[in-house]
Computed example of a mutant assay.
Amino acid sequence: MTSRPLSILDVRSAGPAGRALCVEETAVFQHPLLEDPPASAASAEDRRRYAILQRRAEQTCLACPLLAGCLYDAVVRHDVAGYVGGTTARERARIRTLLGITVEPENLDTLAGVIGGNRPVDHDEVVRLRAAHPDESLERLAHRLGCSLSTVKRHLRRDRNGGRTREQEPRSRPSVRAVLATARTVLDPARGSRRAA
């Protein structure tokens, strides 16, 4: 695991109010490759494109005055996909594990009324379609089902967890300081262990 630049690890507070810089980089932050990182078996070209996108997203996050608040929300309040708050989904999951919290992914389809009158997508249908089309992108599966990408990801996560659902909200939320300290440990394990010693 490579260490991140120390500037992302040294965020102290939410900083001054301002506009999130990712708004200006939607082509990067909403790119399908950044939303759904390539597997280790992916082509070298996909892995290279992903690395370029991730570096651009990281640079944008580093310059953003809202980084600390964004990271906190992405770890504690909302289980979102893609690169958010200077972290990948995998890194945020690791931060949550270390903090001992769980966050249920939001059902954006229900909130947006996307699926005709709040008709839920059948969990078994999502799992069946994924098994039937393992090489198909999750975005294409979402299109087949007539739902959002986040809904497909939520159902597949639930399937990986053995069908268990997690709590909607953590019992007690960690402080911003605790989230930032844990992020420091995850993003730069060598530096985090030196501080703990």
Rank of each mutant, 00 (worst) to 15 (best):
R158E: 12
R56L: 11
I8Y: 03
E25Y: 07
R158Y: 01
T60R: 11
E45V: 13
D36Y: 00
D46L: 14
N161F: 08
P134Y: 03
L62H: 01
V127N: 01
L71Q: 11
S13C: 06
R92Y: 07
D73L: 03
R47C: 06
R55F: 01
P189S: 04
R47F: 02
L21S: 01
A112G: 07
T185A: 14
P174L: 06
G100Q: 00
R140K: 14
L180G: 06
A51H: 02
R19G: 01
R77M: 07
S40V: 11
I8M: 08
H78L: 13
R56M: 10
T87C: 13
V28W: 03
P170R: 09
H133T: 11
A42N: 08
H78C: 05
P32F: 06
P105M: 05
P174G: 04
A63N: 09
L98M: 12
V152N: 03
V75G: 04
K153W: 04
T102E: 15
I8A: 05
F29N: 03
R177D: 12
V76K: 03
V176Q: 13
G162V: 04
S13N: 13
C22F: 08
P38H: 08
D159W: 12
G69H: 05
A68Q: 02
R90G: 09
R12A: 10
G192V: 05
Q54G: 02
R191M: 07
Y50V: 01
V23S: 10
A44Q: 13
E167Q: 12
A196V: 09
D79N: 12
A112N: 12
V126R: 04
S43E: 06
P5E: 12
M1F: 11
L108W: 11
V11Q: 13
A89E: 15
V75H: 05
R49K: 15
T26S: 13
G15V: 07
P189F: 04
L187M: 13
D159F: 10
T88V: 07
L98E: 13
D135R: 15
